[in-house]
Simulated scan of single mutants.
Amino acid sequence: MNNQIQQNRPEGTTSPRVQQHEIDEERAGQRLDNYLLTQLKGVPKTLVYRIIRKGEVRVNKGRVKADYRLKGGDVVRIPPVRISEKSTPKAGQRLIDSVESSIIYEDERILVVNKPSGLAVHGGSGISLGLIETLREARPQQKFLELVHRLDRDTSGCLMVAKKRSALRDLHEQIRTDRVNKTYWALVEGRWASRTSQVNAPLRKNTLQSGERVVRVDPEGKPSLTRFRVLERLRDCTLIEATPVTGRTHQIRVHTLHAGHPIIGDDKYTAKEVNQHFREQGVRRLFLHAAALEFDLPGSGKRQRFTAPLPDELEQSLVTLRHE
């Protein structure tokens, strides 16, 4: 059994009774808190952690912590909880159609999506819903849909989604052992020197007084390496290919900045006057695109490379800059 909490109740109602979920092999290995967040859609995270902490959630009749890794055959007790309808925004049909039409590849184990710029990969931090919530709404019959990795909200391009827990484990292991190759295209300010073939600079997350999170090069940060190649030189800017060897937050954006060539259209790391200059020439968004992914297909082990063409608005901005 794997009973699901019913959704779409009027605001202020609760689940009708205690739920008992038996964990199957597809869910084995998932953290308890992450499992509950997928089962209790519409319930605030703070409440989910509170019912775990108070012992209202039990695994095999015992108290466990939020980071407990579920095992096949575990029985999870979920208490009645308040579900707020306002907390469960619905994706419009236009958004669902946009995401479905962006799928590059699909089999019974995975999806590869050409994520549009401006769409977060998941909801949270003031964002009501993202790509993964949209996919789950579009495919209510799909028992399992999880992000394999992430892209920044304004970055477009190739993104992997697992349809089975076994595929998620496989792809995470490939990422951990450097068998997933990611290729990005970026337009940076100035003339990128061909001799700058890589940036090896440790990165550290920081929180500003305003609460904004930024990443900085810091000797005490985590080791970070990105390889670069010049694709095309344009007036006052360069189109480059970036291949991250490590996978730190904002790695490409901060490494290009560290090299003296910030990415055009980056509101967080690029000077406003630079962005304004290129906005007038047609670059109106972050020019960073996940152009390709290469990995072994879960199940078959076949090596496969998937590509996503530049979005029309980025391609058109290049045409304008070439004309200039």
Rank of each mutant, 00 (worst) to 15 (best):
D178I: 05
V180F: 14
Y184T: 14
W185T: 12
L187T: 05
V188G: 01
V188M: 03
E189V: 11
G190R: 00
R191Y: 05
R191M: 06
R191I: 01
W192V: 01
W192G: 03
A193V: 02
A193H: 12
A193K: 14
S194I: 03
S194M: 01
R195T: 15
T196Q: 12
T196R: 13
S197F: 08
A201Y: 04
A201C: 08
R204Y: 12
K205R: 15
N206W: 08
N206S: 12
T207I: 10
R213S: 05
V214L: 11
R216F: 03
R216C: 07
D218F: 02
E220H: 12
E220Y: 10
E220I: 04
G221C: 13
P223G: 07
P223R: 15
S224A: 15
S224F: 01
S224C: 11
S224R: 13
T226C: 06
T226G: 04
T226R: 05
R227P: 04
F228I: 07
F228K: 10
F228Y: 15
R229D: 15
R229Y: 06
V230D: 05
L231P: 00
L231C: 11
E232C: 07
D236M: 01
C237L: 06
C237D: 00
T238E: 03
T238N: 02
I240E: 06
I240W: 04
A242M: 05
A242N: 07
T243L: 13
T243D: 07
P244T: 10
P244Y: 09
P244G: 13
T249D: 09
H250K: 11
Q251A: 09
Q251V: 05
Q251D: 02
I252D: 11
I252L: 12
R253L: 06
V254C: 11
V254P: 06
H255Q: 12
H255C: 08
T256I: 03
L257M: 08
H258C: 10
A259D: 07
G260F: 03
I263C: 03
G265Q: 05
D266W: 07
D266P: 10
D266I: 04
Y269F: 07
A271D: 14
A271C: 02
K272Y: 05
K272N: 08
K272E: 12
N275R: 04
N275C: 11
N275M: 04
F278A: 00
R279K: 08
G282D: 12
G282L: 07
R284N: 15
R285Y: 09
L286V: 14
